[in-house]
Amino acid sequence: MRKDLTHLSDEALVALVARGDETALGELYDRVGRVAYGIAFRVLRDDRLAEDAVQEGFLAVWRSAATFRAERAKASTWIVTLVHRRAVDLVRREERRRTEPLDLEQRDAPDPVGSAEDEAWLGFERERVQRLLRMLPDAQREALELAYYGGYSQAELAERLGVPLGTIKSRMFAGLSRLRELLDDTETEGSWTPRLTS
């Protein structure tokens, strides 16, 4: 029996997952899995490792849904956070990354998989945030991207870039704060969630 859960909020789905509802977990994957995989792949640059990170992240959602509190984070943010954390853990375990040159270039646009509306929305958000990132001072943008996309810790970055740790810390905070302001300025829907209510 296929339940239709599309009318439920992400947060309501998490509540169902907390009660062992697999269908709700599947629906959350349908909504957030694409972005979760996107960030995992960006960090890991390997499709199998990215899948592992996404799977571990969603199993963490399954196991700890009861700990989720909606006033602390949006459900989609919580899920992306869990997946990103797994990806960072994995990349730090993989020595392979250490030998690769730093790569801040964006890849080409991905193959479309969802509906045309979903693709359009995702594309819109991707363009918007990329544009805002480019508005940051180079040093701040570099710190944010190497940390969040590269999986580098602050100490690793300080060593790699040859700047004091305190400088790295303040660049990250300044960059994230500035990006927050920019996002607020351009926020139209109040949500980055790759889901269209239809």
């Binding site: 977990l25 996107g38 899948e51 799977q55 984070a73 992306v80």
Partner: peptide
């Protein structure tokens, strides 16, 4: 700040997951 970091996740582009991943996750659950 977590919302801002998660917004950075939406800015990524790359390949899409294989369709099997969904089933793997549900099997794992």
């Amino acid at each position: 700040l977590s919302e801002v970091a998660a917004a950075m996740a939406t800015a990524t582009s790359g390949p899409t997951p294989r369709p099997e991943l969904r089933g793997r996750i549900l099997d794992g659950a």
